[in-house]
């Protein structure tokens, strides 16, 4: 029986049985594989780290999309950094009010490969006329971009890897430049129990540019070790004090079908466990 063992941590990890390998690439100094697993469907792993699975990706993509879009309430322009698998795009496209979506992916082959081997992630979203795909380094794109967005979603890999530039102060500063006054930046920020440093480091780097900076969370089974945190950064603190009633009204008006996100989850996801609050407290 073939297995795939994640190599993220030295003393702890998860293992998948591999029923079939759909795609494998070990060139360009990296190892990318997409395989079938009985419990999680198609699984994509890069350099020994699980990136996404068909079965639990909805939690991650819904939370990085609907929380900022519902909190804002009037999102027209969205920028997605990374997210080549198309899952984020699929969720953003569900919002009829969004007029234009720019997705910046560093490698066009990733998009093609995911369309072919993970078709359920994008579910046709790449054909949406509102979508513009830019092939560029995300950090470079925000440095040079003169457009403004209501929401920026950073859907990056682990900070030790090709996505490392998406965790820098420079990147955050340039994101601020590309946001409208009421805009919000959300980013993938790792599993806090396993990598608490990622939370404190991101907080330190975001706070100089944003008056309202916090984290919200969700548990994604294949991002092992407990809850994953998402960084939240905005210069409009009111986005976080929108009432449950308002979120509910907006969600009903949007008429979006979700499997994880709902207004109660939205409100609750900003509650952080004490160990994270303590780490953030001692960080300042």
């Amino acid at each position: 029986m073939k297995t795939y063992t994640e190599t993220l941590y030295d003393s702890y990890g998860q293992e998948f049985s591999v029923d079939k390998v759909y795609f494998e690439n070990k060139t360009d100094h990296q190892h990318l594989v997409i395989f079938e697993n009985a419990k999680f469907g198609r699984v994509m792993a890069l350099d020994g780290i699980i990136q996404t699975t068909e079965a639990d990706e909805f939690i991650y993509h819904e939370m990085l999309t609907h929380v900022p879009l519902m909190a804002h309430g009037d999102v027209k322009h969205v920028l997605i950094i990374g997210g080549g698998d198309g899952g984020m795009l699929r969720e953003v496209c569900k919002h009829a009010s969004v007029a234009h979506i720019t997705q910046v992916e560093i490698d066009d082959q990733v998009v093609d490969m995911c369309k072919e081997y993970l078709p359920n992630h994008s579910a046709g979203a790449y054909d949406d006329p509102r979508v513009q795909i830019v092939i560029d380094d995300g950090a470079n794109f925000v440095r040079e971009c003169t457009d403004k967005f209501d929401v920026i979603i950073s859907d990056s890999t682990d900070p030790i890897g090709p996505g490392d530039v998406l965790f820098t102060s420079d990147f955050y500063a340039n994101c601020k430049k590309c946001l409208t006054d009421d805009g919000v930046l959300v980013t993938q920020n790792g599993v806090a129990y396993m990598q608490l440093d990622e939370v404190t480091t991101t907080a330190k780097r975001l706070q100089p540019y944003f008056s309202d900076q916090t984290f919200y969370s969700a548990a994604v089974p294949t991002y092992i070790g407990g809850i994953m945190t998402f960084a939240w950064a905005s210069n409009n603190p009111a986005l976080r004090t929108v009432t449950t009633d308002t979120i509910t009204q907006r969600f009903e008006a949007a008429n979006i079908k979700t499997r994880y996100y709902n207004p109660a989850i939205h409100m609750a996801s900003f509650a952080l466990p004490q160990y994270i609050l303590d780490a953030l407290e001692s960080n300042t």
Partner: peptide, 30 residues
């Protein structure tokens, strides 16, 4: 970083300066 990306998580150190290089990766290595 290259070794971590490859999936190798065991490293050898013999001094304080080398130890400090692992602070950023402390949750991942032995």
């Amino acid at each position: 970083r290259d070794a971590l990306r490859f999936g190798c998580t065991t490293f050898v150190v013999d001094n304080i300066w080398e130890l400090e290089k692992f602070i950023d990766y402390r949750h991942r290595v032995g």
